[in-house]
Design a protein around this nucleic acid. Structure first.
Length: 419
RNA sequence: GAGCCCGUAGCUCAGUAGGUUAGAGCGCCAGGUUGUGGCCCUGGAGGCCGGGGGUUCAAGUCCCCUCGGGCUCCCCA
């Protein structure tokens, strides 16, 4: 096919009507279930101040250093939001949501932007939903967040996932661990893979995540972060595991699980699916007890997660799960001649006023073509109108599924459809 | 930023060792049924074979460049 003159930007996709049905289904599900958990929706702008994202996620993170879309206008620096935790925290601080009392339970759905090379389960504009609980340091909050994440997957029918769990403690103990890890790797530095060498100074924790075969022996013998946690961190982590057990949520402890944003503390988790290909994380999250203060608010512990909506669709697809219904309409008015056409147009609003969906042909086509169209639109009923019907006040009312029809007055037709 | 694979109708794809006006199925439009869908039959529209250059008497088919897409590494949802 000749390439069209105008196309979407690289990594950005149109969502066409058939697909939108799935999206609406998922969005509705998320909203319904979030309400059951007593989360409230929050919506923030697509663009934020660049400084917020840089400070929030960390200057050295991959997202900030190479994946954000930024531009400026006058003195203002804009960034297309790459995630929503930092913006939600910004809103929390800006509007003093802490003053509403108690802990704040928020959820969100919307597009995010990262300038990466697209591949399966990865786009430059993609969609996430997620929740944030702000103000509680209790392990109950961690577990509710995780429970909601799993709950949505279960509702969709995605049950073959693995919950990976870890605690990365507080910054102080993490720093101690980092030094211990580097000390462990130093003698064998030359044998490490190239990527791991680069990470050695920049972000040694990520070496634990390495998929390179040559790093294996050194990772296996490496010290484990769990042994470097403070008493408080250990206690918190144990409670999380305990409560998860009470809820019957199984998990796999992964002491090598390290997440990408600097703001994470204590609990870290990921939900992995075997159906996603290389990008196997359906959702991920954790605690960020220091972020609110970092952004200028009062010290406020918080925990949250984000899930990739496109990835949920991929998982559903692989599992053969169909989301949403096909298109359909209650009534299709088939008209013959100008008078019938005029009449049909006027009746449409009468149906719609009663909550009945109705449509008709806009192209002045033959009756056969209109019937074909009614079939394609999945109409439940067709009303056929010509001069005869108009004169007699009786219309041909056809049940498309049953292939039965009879002559009825408009009032009788209304009555039947409303049943 | 690096690597691998792929670009023929709206969609899924055929196109023989390079050789006359480029094909199929589905979809779309119309007719077969002078006022009736889903099945069937017939016909039609729709392709500068992603674009440019080269080799050749001849290129969808071979070579180079370029654009676009997919997947992978890195990293993340």
């Amino acid at each position: 096919m000749a390439q069209p003159k105008y196309t979407t930007h690289h990594g950005m996709v149109d969502i066409l009507p058939e697909e939108v049905r799935k999206w609406q289904f998922l969005e509705n599900l998320i909203r319904e279930e979030a309400e059951k958990f007593n989360f409230e929706e929050i919506r923030t702008p697509i663009m934020e101040q660049t400084e917020l994202i840089v400070r929030g996620l960390g200057q050295m993170t991959d997202i900030v250093s190479k994946e954000i879309f930024t531009f400026s206008r006058g003195d203002d620096n804009y960034v297309l939001r790459p995630e929503l935790t930092a913006p939600v925290v910004r809103a929390f601080v800006e509007h003093r949501l802490d003053q509403r009392g108690g802990s704040q339970k928020l959820y969100y759905i919307g597009p995010m932007f990262r300038a990466e090379r697209p591949q399966k389960g990865r786009q430059r504009q993609f969609h996430q939903f997620g929740v944030e609980i702000m103000g509680s340091s209790d392990a109950v909050a961690d577990v509710e967040v995780i429970a909601f994440m799993i709950h949505i997957c279960n509702k969709l029918g995605i049950t073959n996932t693995t919950l990976k769990l870890n605690s990365i403690g507080d910054p102080e103990s993490r720093e101690v661990y980092k030094q211990a890890l580097k000390a462990h790797l130093k003698p064998d530095y030359d044998k490490l893979s190239d990527v791991s060498k680069k990470r050695y100074e920049k972000n040694p924790l990520r070496i634990l995540d390495s998929k390179e075969e040559e790093d294996r022996p050194f990772i296996e013998t490496a010290p484990v972060i769990t042994n470097y946690l403070s008493e408080k961190s250990v206690s918190h982590y144990n409670k999380v595991k305990d409560y998860l057990g009470d809820l019957g949520i199984s998990f796999t402890e992964d002491p090598y699980l390290v997440r990408g944003m600097d703001y994470y503390t204590e609990t870290a988790f990921e939900l992995i699916s075997p159906d996603l290909g290389a990008q196997d994380a359906l959702a991920g999250g954790g605690r960020y007890d220091l972020l609110v203060e970092e952004i200028g608010g009062l010290p406020t512990p918080a925990v949250g997660f984000a899930a990739g909506m496109e990835r949920l669709f991929i998982a559903c697809e692989e599992l053969g799960i169909e989301l949403g219904d096909g298109k359909k309409v209650d009534v299709y008015i088939v008209t013959l001649g100008d008078a019938a056409r005029k009449w049909g147009l006027a009746q449409l609003s009468k149906f719609r006023d009663k909550g009945i969906s109705a449509t008709m042909d806009y192209m002045g086509r033959s009756m056969k073509a209109q019937m074909k169209d009614a079939n394609r639109e999945n109409a439940r009923f067709a009303i056929i109108v010509g001069d005869n019907e108009l004169n007699e006040g009786k219309f041909t009312f056809r049940d498309m599924k049953e292939s039965k029809e009879e002559a009825l007055s408009f009032e009788e037709i209304m009555e039947i459809i409303q049943m």
